[in-house]
Design a protein around this nucleic acid. Sequence first.
DNA 1: TGCAATTATGGTCAAATGACCACGTTTTAA
DNA 2: TTAAAACGTGGTCATTTGACCATAATTGCA
Lengths: 191, 191
Amino acid sequence: MNTAFENYLRQQTELSETDINRISSMATTSKLRRNEFLLREGEVCRHKTFIVSGLLRTFSITPDGNEHILLFSPENTWTLEVESYDREAPARSAIDAIEPSEVLLWNKTDFNSLLEIPQLRKFSEQLISRSIHSSRQRIITALSATPEEKYEDFLQNYPELLSRLPLRMIAAYLGVSLKTLTRIRHAQLTR
Amino acid sequence: MNTAFENYLRQQTELSETDINRISSMATTSKLRRNEFLLREGEVCRHKTFIVSGLLRTFSITPDGNEHILLFSPENTWTLEVESYDREAPARSAIDAIEPSEVLLWNKTDFNSLLEIPQLRKFSEQLISRSIHSSRQRIITALSATPEEKYEDFLQNYPELLSRLPLRMIAAYLGVSLKTLTRIRHAQLTR
DNA sequence: TGCAATTATGGTCAAATGACCACGTTTTAA
DNA sequence: TTAAAACGTGGTCATTTGACCATAATTGCA
């Protein structure tokens, strides 16, 4: 059924075929159009989400109306508004589709039951620790790097996303004005 | 024995006295002097750490020699270099004591065995989700806030730390120059 | 396919910020 | 207790950055 997802599990984990089937079969499939929301700010996040294809973004809007992007989630990654999912509280950020996307969803009860599979639990913990680590890396970069370094960093970490995203979103991800980004790109051309 | 820690568990969790004793008794106590390291960059982080008293900081030094602070850990909080602990890889950041501190340490084997206690597991997951959430909040602030807003934010979130930290560390935490911080404080006085 | 909306770039200008430096005060450690 | 180190503040100046605006190119949808 969800062949792409099952292959992902085969590659990334040591799960048995039986368990892979079980996990896969408990998922709901959903398709999102461009600009469609997976989660709106204020809603409760009730699912863990795996992105089969397409590209999502997690973002929030500050009181002054500026958009800031927390995370891009391309195919073969997961996304979740942790705090909301955990405490069943209103989400502080929103998730929408930048490209038409296909996602798999598990509700909390189901996913928790799946977490009794030791290899899945272990994998899940790995994902969490990686996520914490990358948040920390990003904090460091946000604190210390110049806009140019931030952009270089982005190119290093997500080379394949450059062509899939409008520049203004990269700017919103880096915390830099669009003007500054185009300046950097201009400078790099003539270099 | 570790009365303060045991009280912390009584307040924060639904653990039985038996379990609390078990957890507590598996810890090693350690005292750190001011400026003493709990973990150096490049070492492997082999313990989960609870701060009984004092104040630690997790920081890293960028190639240009600048110090950036990821986390302050006062009494009754935990600290860990996740990525290093999980993968037994060299730590990318260091942890040292800003004040003379007393900490409790558990090694991985012991702590993992303790995680079979369901209430501890649940509590641990809560701590993790809070930590992810606060990292995300911090990314948003780092991306979007002005230095003044960052400072206000810090005062809101950690009012008790202001008097315990040199200003330059707050600057290193906020990603702002010391100059800018003193300017902000000056402006606030005359306001 | 064609039109409307979005996007990338660039100009100008004002404001914010950091680098560097000095000085007086406070804290620390021997 | 005292000398040395660390600390907070302030001045100056050059640079970077963002805000605002216009324009041309591109994209996406009907």
